[in-house]
Nucleic acid binder design. Structure first.
Lengths: 239, 239
DNA sequence: GCGGCAGAATGTGCATACACTTGCACTAGC
DNA sequence: GCTAGTGCAAGTGTATGCACATTCTGCCGC
């Protein structure tokens, strides 16, 4: 069976499985706490259990899934305490990256960052939440890259992946888009000035704000389901 | 075969293999670039290749080993560029942890940290390099824990593990012990004062100094062998 | 003599088979 | 009626086997 890999040529089966399952988790198709059945995944992707198991092991090492010996794997479910620590860590990491970006980015990268940031104002005006979210991810990725530090970039990306399941809905909160843009603006302005401390502080504050919203939301969603939590935010009068 | 695990009771075979191999790497028994033969490891620990493969996969996900498809696994060998980024990242992380420690540590933990730090002066006086190195690891671990942020603690420990193979000999450099103690002293003093910014700066600077020495040493050792590099440092007159 | 190529040898990657653990349901006993 | 114990089913953990990718060796042509 399986003459796949010589055709698709996207790395080994294990790598593909890691990407596939990580994608399911990060995009929210699989929710925290959901069971990851080895045979089910194996059948879904037409592979044997072995590569699935290896993939789950690696995802466990990354912290995306939680493996209990003899009791199967679930999408990692992090308590509010741990979640808070990850958000705080994310804020610190982004602060560092922004600071280093302000000090190290090439002029071309600064211009390009500013240009795209200015363009993103259009997305805010159109309330294009999906598109803005995509731009937002790209924007932050550029800050990580701008720090010119591969390891810090790794840590930031890794932390972001692990947080992804818990902040999926942040831009659906009312008014968040415009505020996010203003916060981005403070970061970009500081980077253009080469003001490391300013950029760091702005980025840290930006992420902290996102975190606060997401954390409350995530805790709520965990308790009562995402849509219920969202509905509550849309009607601030309270349930 | 293998009625081991029900007796030793140290988790699954895979977990044991992960710990065992990670240990071999972190302690330096296996040097960066060294080949990790699946059958050899399997025989060494009397298990089959499957758990060895899973363990190598997980260690790969952690960044401790480098797995090339169809070409085997080697102990991760990081270029000087990457190494520098890891040292810089370590300095930033330690800075954050020290700052948060200064703000959050309980009085009891502060006292205990100070007491053990003062005690370690004795190790410096006796030039007990091994013991001091052990204390040093413990000291830094307490800073990570003191930050009261599980995720940052993880990132710090993870980064330290990956750096371990490259700074094994730092305390064998002449005069390093005493300087290290003084740098620790600055950190402890700031923490006792509750001076977050001061503690952060002191820790960052401390790690940067260690990094600079280790980085030069590591680059040198990679080129000419560890002992040759060490000999060169012991005779600063130059080769 | 050197570069290149065919073939074998080595070793990795995946599939399958089997053993064991865990959880659940059913039954027996109190 | 409830609790404790046993047996079964489902699913995980490890071992083994086979196919294929890579690499090394030796041979041939230039």
């Amino acid at each position: 069976m399986a003459r796949r890999r010589t055709l698709i040529r996207a790395g080994t089966t294990v790598e593909q499985m890691v990407r596939a399952v990580a994608d399911l988790i990060v995009t929210g198709e699989l929710r925290p706490g959901e069971k990851l059945d080895e045979v089910a995944l194996a059948e879904r992707y037409s592979v044997s259990r072995t590569p699935v198991r290896e993939a789950l092991g690696q995802l466990g090492a990354m912290g995306l899934v939680d493996r209990r010996p003899n009791r199967g794997a679930i999408v990692a479910i992090v308590g509010t305490e741990r979640l808070a620590s990850m958000f705080e860590g994310m804020a610190e990491l982004e602060g560092i990256c922004a600071r280093l970006s302000a000090e190290r980015m090439s002029p071309a990268d600064r211009w390009s960052l500013d240009r795209d940031h200015q363009d993103s104002a259009g997305l805010v005006r159109q309330a294009a939440e999906e598109d803005y979210e995509q731009f937002n991810t790209e924007f932050h990725s550029r800050l990580y890259a701008g720090a010119a530090n591969a390891h810090l970039q790794d840590l930031a990306v890794q932390t972001r992946s692990r947080l992804a399941p818990f902040r999926r809905a942040q831009f659906r909160l009312p008014g968040r888009l415009a505020k996010s843009w203003q916060e981005h603006d403070a970061i970009v302005t500081a980077i253009l000035r080469g003001d490391g401390a300013g950029a760091g502080a702005a980025a840290k504050s930006h992420v902290s704000i996102v975190s606060a919203a997401s954390a409350v939301f995530a805790a709520d969603a965990a308790a009562s389901g995402e849509d219920a939590a969202l509905a509550r935010y849309r009607m601030p009068s309270g349930l």
